[in-house]
Simulated assay, not measured.
Amino acid sequence: MRKSIASYFTISLTICILLFVSLSNDKAFDISKYSTKGLVLNYTVNQGDSATFGNLSSEKESKLFSPHLGKSFVGFKEALAFKESGGNYFTVNSYGYLGKYQFGKETLKLIGIYNTEKFLNDPALQERAFIANAQRNKWILRRDIRNFVGKRINGILITESGILAAAHLSGPGSVKSYLRSYGVDNFEDGYGTTIEYYMKRFSGYDTSFLKPDKKAKANSV
Rank of each mutant, 00 (worst) to 15 (best):
S174P: 00
E78Y: 07
T52C: 14
T193K: 01
T14P: 01
N186Q: 05
F187E: 00
S57Q: 11
T116I: 13
G104E: 12
V149C: 05
L98R: 10
Y89T: 01
K200S: 14
E188I: 15
L110W: 09
L98I: 15
D26T: 13
G192L: 10
V21R: 05
L210E: 00
T193D: 02
L19N: 12
A165P: 02
F73A: 02
T107D: 01
I163S: 06
Q135D: 04
F202P: 00
S170G: 14
I145A: 03
L98E: 02
V175Q: 04
F148P: 01
L19K: 09
K151C: 06
V74G: 00
F209I: 04
N25K: 10
G171K: 05
S24D: 07
E188F: 03
I156W: 03
Q135Y: 07
N133R: 11
L157K: 14
G86A: 04
L110Q: 13
D189S: 03
E117D: 15
S203K: 09
A218D: 04
S4W: 03
A167V: 06
L19H: 08
G38R: 05
Y34T: 10
F29H: 10
D144I: 11
Q126G: 06
R146W: 09
K109E: 14
A134Q: 05
I111H: 14
K27Q: 08
Y182T: 12
M1A: 11
N147H: 09
Y205T: 04
K60I: 06
Y97Q: 05
N219P: 01
K100M: 13
F82Q: 04
Y114H: 14
F90D: 00
F29N: 07
E84K: 03
Y178H: 07
D213L: 03
E196H: 10
T10W: 09
F103Q: 06
G183S: 06
L110K: 14
K71E: 09
T194M: 05
L41V: 13
Q47F: 13
L13S: 12
T36F: 11
Y191D: 07
K200L: 07
G87K: 05
M199V: 00
T36M: 04
S7D: 00
F53A: 11
K200Y: 09
G54S: 14
D26K: 09
R146S: 12
A132F: 14
R143N: 11
S7P: 00
R128A: 13
T207K: 02
K176A: 13
K138H: 06
I163N: 03
Y198Q: 01
K214S: 11
Y101R: 09
A6C: 02
